[in-house]
Amino acid sequence: MSNIKLGATLFCYGTEYARGQYDFEECVKQAAEAGAEGYEIVATQMIPSYPNVSEEFLGQVEDLRNKYGIGPVGYGANNDKGMMVDRNLTDDEMLADTIIDLKSANKLGCKVMRSQYMLSPEAFERLAPYAELFDVKVGIEIHNPETPCSPTMRKYLDVIKKTGSKHLGFVPDFGCFSVAPNKPQWIKALKAGVKEEHLQMAASMRYAGVDIEEARQKLMEAGADPAINEALQGMYGFVQFKPKEALPGLLEEFTEILPYCFEMHGKFHYLSEDCVEPSIPYEELLPFIKKSDFDGYLICEYEDELYCGGTEFTKRQLQMEKRILNS
């Protein structure tokens, strides 16, 4: 029996925040009004005294909890392997930085921390006793183009099984289940003068597994506007998609890692007024999770590629999730 709580990452309001239209309080308020029961904070984005949590900020977080009824439930960590000028951080250093993140997550009262695969499987393994000490569960984010059981993620799965630690796991980002082209990239390409027929041609080739260079060449031969290149890059990169027929296989992979998931990222790129995400199969994903034993937050995460702000889309995303989960 699942126990799904709905949350939002304040990253959804990243554009409004960067423009000074929203301060931290307004982000929390908007998340509460959209229907989130808790929020994720991306530490490098919104913690003023990063990487530490000051008493002043903690006080503000508590004030806002009293005012709007929600507080931080997830801590989004970055693993800045390339932060030194002349070399990559070693595993020892990555581990030490991640422990600072654990400290901050714990101080904020977050029970879950999302990490990224820049933290090596070896360092992740060594993190287990510290995660237990702070009682913060650390999940490696599974982000498109990775899939739940892609070779890189398998290495983390092995570590999770080997340690047997309940404090190590995964945070799947639903972008990895994309089965249709990304809408904002499509919109941007059309605006840049690319013809719809050429975008459709690109998508068909992607579905068919045509190599990117071959696809590029065929598009150019067909007279496509060179501006299509950005969309094409996306189709083979961070917003790539598979044919719908691949979904059962992806859900099988998902089943294998589900026992180790304590938070999920409900990624969305665009929702029209009918509250449908065109690229991610929520109608299949949410009933699948509902039937599982998942216990934790489904954190919705808007990726603002259109730079239009996330306020309205986040409301729609939470409405959509509620509708599907309650049906």
């Binding site: 960067a18 490098t44 984005q45 970055n78 800045d80 932060m83 030194m84």
Partner: peptide
């Protein structure tokens, strides 16, 4: 202003 969605350590300035 730093033109990105998150902050950075100054050591990332190339």
């Amino acid at each position: 202003q730093l033109a990105y969605y998150r902050g950075h350590y100054l050591s990332t300035i190339d």
